[in-house]
Nucleic acid binder design. Structure first.
Lengths: 156, 156
DNA sequence: CTACGATGGTCAACGTTGTTGTCCATATAG
DNA sequence: CTATATGGACAACAACGTTGACCATCGTAG
């Protein structure tokens, strides 16, 4: 017997679930004073904190060219989320640092994500949610931060 | 006590899980004679079958402008996945139809997705996988096809 | 100390994929 | 018959990625 759900439903649900969380995050972030934050920005700010402190390094972490990383940093700088300073030990490097506003966005994001997770826990039960997270960990690569996200969708 | 996992892990895992499936799908599709298929194409072909039989209609279904939908159809036509014919009842309309190759890709995709789901079932157990699918259904909108996917990520 | 290769950063040109605005042909309603 | 709505195409533009070229600076090997 094969009363299994069709395989194509799984990726769709995974993507929709992801979208639901991200969309609610940004709706809430907009309400809390960060209307310009885009889905990428949070990832990039996180990436900056974990060792990607120059454009080149950031590009490597994110899996894009240094030029693309540079443009993104420029955008984040314009939005007031990061600032750049010259490294006194190596005047070629322009060190990227989160501003207070950048940290604020990251903290709010963390709190909102925790809140959203709490809502799912209320809906599904903490047990089931933990099981879901554990299962997802088993089918995904361990390093959560190697997303290679930029525009991997699309492309003709 | 709050030994709950941080909330930000959930969206990341959902996205990574989605990516794993899609990447493996396209690696396998490439092996099976569809190296040019892109993640979007499958969705669009599906959308064409469920009632989006002109560029305008397709644009509405996908949540993009009719011009963008037209360009996508053009690409799919160039790749041999769809063909266009004039509607004899309304000579303004250019009806989009899947070619044999288009159906072939869709059928292969369905089989590959079923196979991937089977692998997850072997890894997690059929019970857990069903529970995971059931849980995802509870936290996502019922209409799976209203993705609004095109480039909703990114944007500076 | 100097010269050279490696590295960080920027500028420029281009490709892809979306957008809006405009226009034309055709269908349909009054 | 005429006016409005609709399908479709063309053009210009924007966002975001790419590659290639170039410059300044660092580190090291002679």
């Amino acid at each position: 017997m094969s009363s299994d759900p069709p395989g194509f439903e799984l990726p769709l649900r995974l993507f929709l679930a992801f979208r639901v969380l991200i969309d609610e995050l940004h709706a809430e972030l907009a309400r809390q004073g960060h209307p310009d934050a885009r889905p990428m920005h949070g990832f990039v700010l996180q990436a900056i904190m974990r060792g990607g402190d120059t454009a080149v390094e950031l590009g490597r972490t994110l899996g894009v060219s240094k030029q693309a990383a540079g443009k993104t940093v420029e955008t984040l700088e314009r939005l007031g989320y990061v600032e750049r300073a010259v490294d006194p030990r190596d005047t070629r490097r322009r060190v990227v640092r989160l501003t207070a506003r950048g940290f604020d966005m990251l903290e709010r994001s963390a709190r909102i994500f925790d809140d959203l997770r709490g809502r799912w826990a209320a809906e599904l039960g903490e047990e089931r949610l933990r099981a879901l997270e554990a299962d997802l960990r088993r089918v995904t690569p361990p390093d959560v931060f190697r997303l290679d996200v930029p525009g991997w969708f699309g492309g003709q």
